[in-house]
């Protein structure tokens, strides 16, 4: 088992390296630079700025230096948000994004599987159709439509909850953003659970259980254990994406997470900020893929001895 984890960990490193390299050069070949303002700066000032941030060096040297710094955990200074290092910016935003993301994932897992199991046990009933309808709505209605609609309904019309703001993570403030983040995931998880449960309930080994007089509870337990495997594979990368923030939700609800830095950073050519965000996201993705692999091996004995 330890060997298994170690292997997964080692095989993640080259992927991370490729991702960092690819994004570094992609970012650099893009036209424009971090100090291109509406009013062009004086050539002298521009030169000084470039020198101060090491942008006058050959690209390959900058790349090498970035990698070295990265190894020691240094993500460099931000070009655009002056006087802050990228690490500081990300560390400040990450707790916000992670709070929202983890709550959303939890909600999606609990509500989604429950809905899916209920629908699968009452296939083609009214309850089933309601779950399918809800799930289709969840995946089709984009979050930038749901978010303002919720603001109108719960914030303005009913005045139950604030329309935005972080407020140090007060429960009232995070309810709407968490629900908006979770809705599409609830929908997907419910659909997947329903589909795999129906398949599992029709399987030969569930027929065996029934032929041996095992009750409904045992049958659901067995079917669910098989059904949970594909859901985990889906939730791995999704969790990584949610924990590293959502541009839309953070923008609409005015939350200080890290989701926005991709957009802001890329548009302002804030090289280090974008790179920092890419690195954080990539680490999360690889980490969660690894967690999924390990959980998979724990839950499915056939994988363990592969």
């Amino acid at each position: 088992m330890v060997l298994f984890v170690l292997r997964r960990f080692l095989s993640a490193i080259p992927t991370l390296f490729v991702v960092v390299t690819l994004s570094f050069f992609l970012m650099r070949v893009a036209p424009g630079g971090p100090f291109d303002l509406e009013q062009p700066l004086e050539a002298k000032i521009m030169e000084n700025l470039n020198r101060a941030f090491g942008l006058d060096r050959p690209l390959i040297e900058q790349y090498g230096r970035y990698l070295l710094n990265l190894l020691s955990g240094d993500l460099g200074p931000s070009f655009y948000i002056r006087d802050f290092s990228v690490a500081e910016i990300l560390l400040k935003g990450l707790p916000v994004s992670m709070t929202l993301g983890s709550l959303a994932i939890l909600l999606a897992l609990v509500v989604g599987t429950t809905l899916g199991v209920i629908a699968s046990l009452r296939q083609n009933s009214g309850v089933d159709y309601a779950v399918i309808g809800f799930a289709t709505a969840g995946v089709t209605i984009p979050n930038f439509v749901v978010a303002p609609l919720f603001q109108i309904i719960f914030g303005l019309m009913l005045s139950w909850l604030p329309v935005g703001g972080w407020n140090n993570g007060a429960v009232r403030n995070i309810i709407l953003p968490v629900i908006v983040l979770a809705l599409p995931q609830i929908a997907v998880v419910a659909r997947m659970t329903r589909a795999s449960m129906i398949e599992a309930l029709r399987s030969d080994h569930v027929r065996t259980l029934r032929s041996l007089g095992m009750g409904q509870r045992v049958i659901v337990l067995h079917a669910l254990r098989g059904a949970i495997l594909p859901i985990m594979s889906y939730l791995g990368p999704t969790a990584a994406a949610l924990l590293t923030g959502s541009v839309v939700v953070e923008t609409i609800f005015g939350l200080p997470g890290i989701g926005r830095y991709f957009v802001e950073g890329a548009l302002n050519r804030d090289y280090t900020l974008v790179m920092g965000t890419v690195v954080v996201v990539a680490i999360f993705v690889l980490l969660f893929n690894m967690i999924v692999d390990i959980l998979y091996a724990l839950l499915d004995p056939r994988v363990r001895y592969e």
Partner: peptide, 10 residues
């Protein structure tokens, strides 16, 4: 494993 939003924004 490249963040999708990053790709699109680039």
């Amino acid at each position: 494993s490249l963040p999708f939003i990053f790709f699109v924004i680039m």
